[in-house]
Nucleic acid binder design. Sequence first.
DNA 1: TTCCGACAGTGGGGTCGCAAT
DNA 2: ATTGCGACCCCACTATCGGAA
Length: 305
Amino acid sequence: MLAGEGPPPADTRGWAAEVKWDGMRVIVAVAADGAVRAFARSGADATARYPELQSLSRLAGVAPVVLDAEVVALAPGTGIPSFERLQQRMTLRQPDRIRAARARIPVTPMVFDVLRHRGEPVTGRSYLERRGLLDRLDLPHDGSVAAPPAWIGADVPAAVEWTRERGLEGVILKRLASVYQPGRRSQDWVKVKFRPTVDVVIGGWLADARGEPRSLLLGKPDGEGLRYIGSCGSGLSAAQRSLLLPLLREAAAGRSPFTAGPPLPVADIRWVQPLLRGEVQYAEVTDAGSLRQPAWKGLRGLAGE
DNA sequence: TTCCGACAGTGGGGTCGCAAT
DNA sequence: ATTGCGACCCCACTATCGGAA
């Protein structure tokens, strides 16, 4: 089940709030013999990637049991998930490397729903009932997994503030009376994200087959130079592309305006003078200094204005 | 008739593994 | 030994189409 997106409901009675964890979604199945298997959203078997999940074999007493969870890698000392750290764990398949990496980068499965319990599907039961089932599970207490709290009803607004202040990615609001709809995106779950925006300067662009901008190379003024902070193609509608094209052509330049930053794309870049300002929304800044999940929000004028 | 949900296709950062160099 | 590229991971967003309201 996936969440829809939108403003939080005005009246949060009848709703619950949970932290939106930035990680990898997994469905975990525990069999009666204690065997634990995990599956990614694509359906791919993710069991070998996360040995931490094996501690869930202690749920064999209520097996077959199926859980919904988000695997996260917490940045040390903060309690904030770091997607970059998680990526370093995702594709480590060899057993020896898993063991080595596990010591370096622990991950925590955040269990937030129960889909099957004692072999019986419980997706048709309400969120509140399933949450009760989850709270009564005999989860390990060694820190290998966690079932983060849910705020109910009147506590929802405070939960939103608490989550925002801590720098977490957002919250998921869930209708207390809703059932679990596997594979569906439903408005019974509403995702509220706290995404920052940044003012950027366009320093170049990549053309699509028709010669219109496919993506923009973005920079941020940095001392006396322009620091490259990544490319952005998401959010460029047909209207935005045709609006940008003449401006980009007019600002065409012979060489790169960028003076610092992570590596530029290798494909043929069309440079422009750093004149056009815009606004971009993003998830976070990577260690290399690039924007993750950048989305174009529109032109904001000319540089220097 | 209009609107919504599902789907496919575009774009991003990043990692890994493999083939070509 | 180094590179380039595709396959995976996460995802945002646009455009399209068919069916429900």
